[in-house]
Write a protein that binds this DNA or RNA. Structure first.
Lengths: 196, 196
DNA sequence: CTTTGATGTTGACAGCGTACACATCCCGTC
DNA sequence: GACGGGATGTGTACGCTGTCAACATCAAAG
């Protein structure tokens, strides 16, 4: 046996690290991130409770890895949205809609990525690094939609767009605004069209 | 002894219910809401771990009571902000700034109020009821600032304003935007002035 | 073939939320 | 004024959690 398609292909299990991340993502689709336990993830992956500690310093490190994976998916979705749009302005709106849609589709993952569940400093540093590309995509979309704006105004617009979609996403994810996928997207589009 | 100034003034302790809420609020200023334990609150209040269960169905019920208290403070601050403003438009901006400032000043309480820490259905219903006045204040400020808008547009504006300030508050609270109190207020004002 | 280091397991501990049984004590009734 | 009951607080226990320490296993390097 052994040697899965993944590169790590380790000794006893064959890339347990990736298996743990996958198990955590599976569980996250079924429950809130605060109910997610390290022991539960290990159980899901079919190993003992202590096995994860050979690959992650602690629970926060595992969560940070899962969140990092989430940010990579997130960035992909944001970029897909902009590249499919006919012009920069539509691209910005599409990206905002995609932002909200991602949160709606994977609420637990979104909360893990942006919420306070990861607390230890080292894990947070990793998170910052992993989230940077996705946030750059957002900045890029704003810059493309407002090419004539100077730096200060552009910063204001980035902050506004980000706050707007992040706030809407948060309100939906936390159940403060009940919303199906379609309603969520419609709300995002309506709100984004009010931008200057 | 006995009979504190509060009305409940109960048998053994003298309004343990209020004391527990106060203890929880104290602890919330010192730590994140996810580290807040029911046993810790009981310890802070000087009673046994099971004592809270005479006043709250479970941990969620206590948290909901604390969050309800938070929403009452929140509403007060929002209304203070609007009433001190010279006109409706300035009132809306001042209220948005107050929204963000509240989150900045009491991040753990804010997360408890809007975050996913309370999960049980009954507790969430109480939360919805307690949060309604504060959200009405927000709706009122938007309506006052845009008196000529029809219902649909007003709904869009409410959604936009709420998402905007809530998103900025969330980003600051979750450390995604580092911000002192002054910077947080300035960001809120800058962002709100971009509204139509 | 042996040694070694990476990987996984077992057992233990403290802390958590909470169910159950018991102790205490205020208050209305006689 | 004595008393019984119901509200209030305590002690104990269970299963869950994250994590430490010691041990077992096994692929590969010498």
């Amino acid at each position: 046996m052994c040697t899965l398609s993944t590169s790590k292909a380790s000794y006893h299990h064959g890339d347990l690290r990736a298996a743990l991340i996958a198990a955590a993502e599976t569980l996250l689709t079924r429950m809130g991130p605060s109910e997610l336990s390290l022991r539960g993830v290990a159980r899901e992956a079919g190993v003992s409770a202590m096995a994860p500690y050979r690959h992650f310093a602690d629970k926060d490190a595992l969560l940070a890895a899962v969140a990092g994976d989430g940010f990579r998916q997130f960035e992909t979705r944001l970029n897909q949205a902009t590249s499919a749009a006919p012009n920069a302005r539509a691209g910005l709106i599409a990206q905002g809609v995609a932002y909200v849609r991602f949160a709606h589709d994977q609420p637990a993952l979104f909360r893990l990525m942006f919420g306070p569940l990861i607390t230890k400093a080292v894990a947070l540093e990793h998170l910052d690094r992993d989230s940077a590309p996705a946030l750059d995509a957002l900045r890029g979309a704003v810059a493309a939609a407002y090419p004539q704006a100077d730096t200060a105004r552009r910063d204001d617009l980035v902050l506004t767009c980000w706050s707007l979609v992040h706030g809407l996403a948060g309100l939906i994810v936390d159940g403060r605004l009940p919303a199906s996928a379609e309603v969520a997207e419609a709300m995002a589009a309506r709100v984004l069209r009010l931008l200057p």
